[in-house]
Computed example of a mutant assay.
Amino acid sequence: MLNKVTLTVSSREAVTNRTLAAFRGEPQGAVISFASPEMLWQTLTRKRWELLKAMTGRGPMTIRALSRELDRDVKGVHGDVHALLDAGVLDRTEEGRILFPYDAVHVDFELEAA
C-alpha cells in the first residue's frame, strides 16, 4: 500500500473539522493544507516540485546528494529545502538528513467562479 499525501487548499474550518475527526479516531490520511491556491503555488514552485518528485519514495537524503541528482547548485537547493521544511512539506531526521516520507502525492483543489 502506498504512503500517499494529499496537498490541498482548505479553509481553517475544514482543517479544524479534519483535526476533530482525527481526535475521534476517524482516519484522515496524510494531508498538507494550504490557505489558498496562491499559497500552494507560492510554496510549490516548479523547482520545488521537481525536488519533491526526486525525493518521493526515496528515504532520507542530504541536501548535497539531492543537489547532485537535480543537477542544481547546493545553495539553491538549500533554499528550496528550507522553504519546504518551513511549510511542513519536508521533515528533517535526527541525523540532519531531509525526508519526504511519502511514496505518492495527490494535489487537490478546486477553482470556482468569482
Rank of each mutant, 00 (worst) to 15 (best):
E50W: 05
R48I: 04
D86T: 14
R48P: 00
K53N: 11
L85A: 00
R58P: 10
I63V: 12
L84Y: 02
R68S: 15
D73Y: 11
K47D: 10
T56I: 15
V74Q: 11
E50Y: 08
R97P: 06
D80A: 05
E95V: 09
T93I: 02
L52F: 01
L52G: 14
R68A: 13
K75L: 11
I63G: 06
P60Q: 07
G59L: 01
E95P: 07
M55C: 07
W49N: 04
R64M: 13
V77Y: 00
V81T: 01
G59M: 02
K75D: 11
G79R: 14
L66V: 00
R72P: 09
V81P: 01
T62H: 03
W49I: 08
I63C: 04
K75Y: 08
G76F: 10
E50S: 14
H78N: 05
E94F: 07
G79T: 15
G79H: 15
G96F: 05
D91N: 15
L52H: 02
R64N: 12
D91P: 15
R92L: 05
K47Y: 15
K53F: 09
G88C: 00
E95L: 09
R64Y: 09
R72F: 14
A83G: 15
G96N: 00
L84D: 02
W49A: 04
A83D: 13
R68G: 13
V74A: 12
E50T: 06
D71S: 11
V89C: 12
K53Y: 11
R97T: 04
A87R: 05
E94G: 07
L52I: 00
E69S: 15
G88V: 01
T56A: 13
E50V: 02
G88S: 01
R64P: 13
G96H: 00
V89N: 06
V89S: 11
A87Y: 05
G88Q: 02
V74N: 11
L85V: 11
A65L: 06
A83K: 11
P60A: 03
E94S: 08
R48Q: 02
R46G: 13
R46S: 12
G76P: 10
M55H: 11
D86Y: 12
L85M: 13
